[in-house]
Every structure is written in structure tokens, then in C-alpha cells.
Amino acid sequence: MLENIKYIIEKYGDHPAFFRYKSSTGKLLPLFYIYDSYLQSPDIWAQLLKSTGKRSIRNTPYDGIFIGLLVEEKHKAEVLAAGFDGIYTYFATNSFSYGSSQRNWRSIKAFCDSNNLIFIPSVGPGYIDTSIRPWNGQNTRNRINGKYYETSLKAALETRPEIISVTSFNEWHEGTQIEPAIPKTRGQTAYLDYLPYKPSLYLDITRRWAEKFREEQEKWLQ
């Protein structure tokens, strides 16, 4: 991980499109989402992510904001012990996991607030992955012509988060894409489209809620 971070920052760190986020100390630092972070023990992560760690990345040119994945409730304490800067929930299926269950977001946010962690709820337009996981129909979530997405965005916004992540832009195989779509069939696979609405339906919804998010954030800071 340390070598990967060094490579990313050294190769792309000066590019104008390289994203940086203002940390609690006021520094602009790269933000990294760490998928399946719970597969490594907190003690191992702490060697890299805590200032007292043996190979600490903190206060070096390679420092960043590191966001761990929360799946189970116990991961809250593990993320904290590991030295991560925040939590994200990733999965687009409401109730698939503890972290992706919108009913838990307020309590997760409260935990993050009390421990100086960033809470990043993840929202999605729907979910259907049965073309690649035929056994997983119980986790399908119908888009309901954008209502599922808007319900997820509303639940996320109500927690007053610093960031909301979208799962995903273009993962067609899991039915979570928000990019423009028109009817398309390839072999036996018929890709989801947004008819009778226009191809940009989900980008339009994203734009509208992004503007609302910005307006709400301004109110929270007053």
C-alpha cells in the first residue's frame, strides 16, 4: 500500500485533476477509498496510518485522507483503531449490510462525529447483479424511475455528511450506472435503460441533489 501511494502521488500528484480534500488540520491532502479494508487487521493498518506506526505515512509527502470500508458494526471500532480518517458504506443495496442500511446512518455519523472521523454514506440508483450472480436476487433493488436514488440521497443528506459518494457511475454489470443510457442488447443480455425518461435522467437527478447538498452545507456552517 505504501509503495502504491508513493507511485500515485509521484506520478499524478502535480496534475490539475488530482483530487485533494481539506483535512481537519487545514491541509489539502489526497483522498483514498480503501475497499475491503477490514480484511487487514487494525494493528497492521496502524503501522501505516498512525503517527506512531513503524512505517507511518503521517506528516510525510505521502500523507493523505484514508477512508475505510464499513460493512459490519464492529468495523467502526476497527477503523478507529487502524488510524483511518473516515468511513464509507459503498454498497448500493439498502439493508445489504450494517453499513449500507440507511436506518443505521445516523448512529454511524454520531460515532464518527465523536471520534473525529469523516462519515461518507454511499448512495446508488438501484441494484441488480443477477446477470453475473444469478443467486443474488434478494439484493436486487428496483430503480422505480429514480425514486430509489432520491430516497437514498435524502437519507444521506439528513445525516449532514461532509461527502456523499455515488455507487456507481458505470458499473453496468451490477445495475448501478448513472451515466446516460439508451436501449441496448448484446447476446442474451439486455442492458437497463431509463425509458420513458431521457438518457440523462440520473445525471440530472445527481446535479439537482448536488446543488441541494451544497445549499444545505452552507446552512449548516451558519
Rank of each mutant, 00 (worst) to 15 (best):
E3R: 09
E10T: 08
K11R: 07
K11L: 07
K11I: 02
Y12M: 01
H15F: 05
P16G: 00
K22W: 01
T25M: 13
P30E: 00
L31N: 04
F32H: 04
Y35E: 07
D36Y: 04
Q40L: 03
S41M: 05
I44T: 12
W45Y: 02
Q47L: 10
K50Q: 11
T52G: 10
G53T: 05
K54I: 00
S56D: 05
I57P: 09
R58E: 02
T60Q: 00
G64E: 01
E73C: 04
H75R: 10
F91K: 15
F91W: 14
A92K: 07
N94W: 13
S95E: 11
F96V: 12
S97Q: 02
S101W: 12
R106C: 08
D113Q: 02
D113C: 02
S114M: 03
I118G: 14
F119G: 03
I120F: 00
P121Y: 05
V123Y: 10
V123P: 08
P125C: 06
P125K: 05
D129V: 09
D129C: 12
T130K: 06
R133S: 04
P134E: 04
P134L: 04
W135S: 10
N136E: 02
Q138C: 08
K147G: 15
K154D: 14
K154P: 13
S165V: 09
V166S: 09
V166I: 09
T167L: 10
T167E: 11
N170W: 13
H173N: 14
T176A: 15
I178S: 09
P180M: 10
Q188D: 08
T189Q: 14
T189M: 09
A190I: 15
L192F: 14
P196K: 03
Y197D: 07
Y197G: 06
L201A: 00
L201Y: 02
I205G: 03
I205H: 07
R208T: 15
R208D: 15
E211N: 13
K212G: 00
R214D: 10
E218S: 15
W220F: 14
W220P: 10
